[in-house]
């Protein structure tokens, strides 16, 4: 039963990692940009839900209805201004720019909201769970987050596969110059992809704030887990990101079961093993050697 509990709790945590990571995977897949500020965007969404949304009469529980679209727009604007300019230079510039953005966001949050932990108040929902067996309890909130992650990844998969804009995102991801000479404005498409990435990570940030306390530095920690989920699942595969997130979650639960100090280490070990054995991840496409 203990093993089953490890798998279940790991899968629940993994759902959150996948939700957090899908935007990272999308931005890398489409624009080849590793957004080092990805985690900080989630934290900003959390702070927005706690402090700003109530000022406009929106309860923290329902804040995602406002925060997610606002972050989608923010993603589009940040892409078209800051990130696009760095893409036009070279890949290292995008790393430096997003790293700078991450440092800036974290320090601004520290300045304005201090290092004290915050959380999104969802009342009695936070502790409520149902009992699967005598030793296995499942948190309603974690289950909803896993459900949201599956729904978001499924919706993204359908969007990319069957809509005009989704098709364009895949086209510019394959060859942006050829797409441009077929009439597509790839900068606009990059903006849309970044908008989706920011929206999904804002949702993840709010989900995080509902399940645990967060602080300005939480973004970096979660970015590492999200990055591991993307690499373990295979870059460019959304379902791979879900499986990668769940695999990292289960590894962490297993590590914690052996010794609470091994929780993070176990996830990192899985990441290293996958990198060594299957560098393209569990579902990633094999790339021909150059």
């Amino acid at each position: 039963m203990t093993w089953l509990n490890i798998v279940i709790q790991g899968a629940l945590v993994g759902g959150f990692y996948a939700l957090f990571a899908c935007g990272l995977s999308l931005m890398f897949g489409v624009m080849k940009v590793i957004n080092l500020a990805h985690g900080d965007v989630a934290v900003v969404a959390g702070y927005t839900a706690v402090f700003l949304a109530p000022k406009f009469g929106v309860s923290p529980l329902w804040s995602f209805v406002v925060v997610v679209p606002v972050f989608a727009l923010l993603g589009y604007v940040v892409q078209r201004t800051l990130i696009q300019k760095s893409i036009d230079r070279d890949p290292f510039t995008t790393l430096l720019v997003t790293f700078g953005l991450s440092v800036l966001i974290e320090n601004l949050l520290l300045e304005v909201y201090t290092a004290n932990g915050q959380s999104i108040n969802i009342g009695s929902l936070i502790g409520s769970s149902f009992q699967l067996s005598s030793t296995i309890y499942i948190s309603y909130v974690s289950l909803v987050v896993l459900g949201v992650a599956v729904a978001v990844l499924g919706a993204l998969q359908i969007f990319l596969g069957h809509t005009k804009t989704g098709r364009l995102i895949r086209a510019v991801s394959d060859d942006r110059e050829a797409a441009q000479l077929s009439g597509a404005n790839y900068r606009h498409i990059f903006g849309i992809a970044a908008g989706i990435a920011f929206a999904t990570v804002a949702l993840a940030g709010i989900a995080y704030g509902m399940t645990t306390e967060f602080a300005p530095s939480s973004g970096v920690t979660n970015l590492i887990y999200a990055f591991e989920a993307v690499v373990v699942g295979g870059i460019g595969s959304l379902w791979g990101t879900l499986v990668g997130g769940i695999a990292i979650g289960i590894a962490q639960q297993l590590g914690e079961h052996i010794n609470p100090e091994y929780q993070v280490l176990a996830g990192n070990l899985l990441f290293l093993v996958v990198l060594a054995v299957r560098p393209n991840g569990l579902f990633g496409k094999k790339t021909a050697p150059s």
């Binding site: 394959d174 077929s182 009439g183």
Partner: peptide, 15 residues
């Protein structure tokens, strides 16, 4: 320079 991860029809549909 086809869009390799798309079908032949999707390639022309982009056009």
């Amino acid at each position: 320079r086809p869009f390799e991860n798309m079908t032949v029809f999707e390639n022309t549909l982009v056009g």
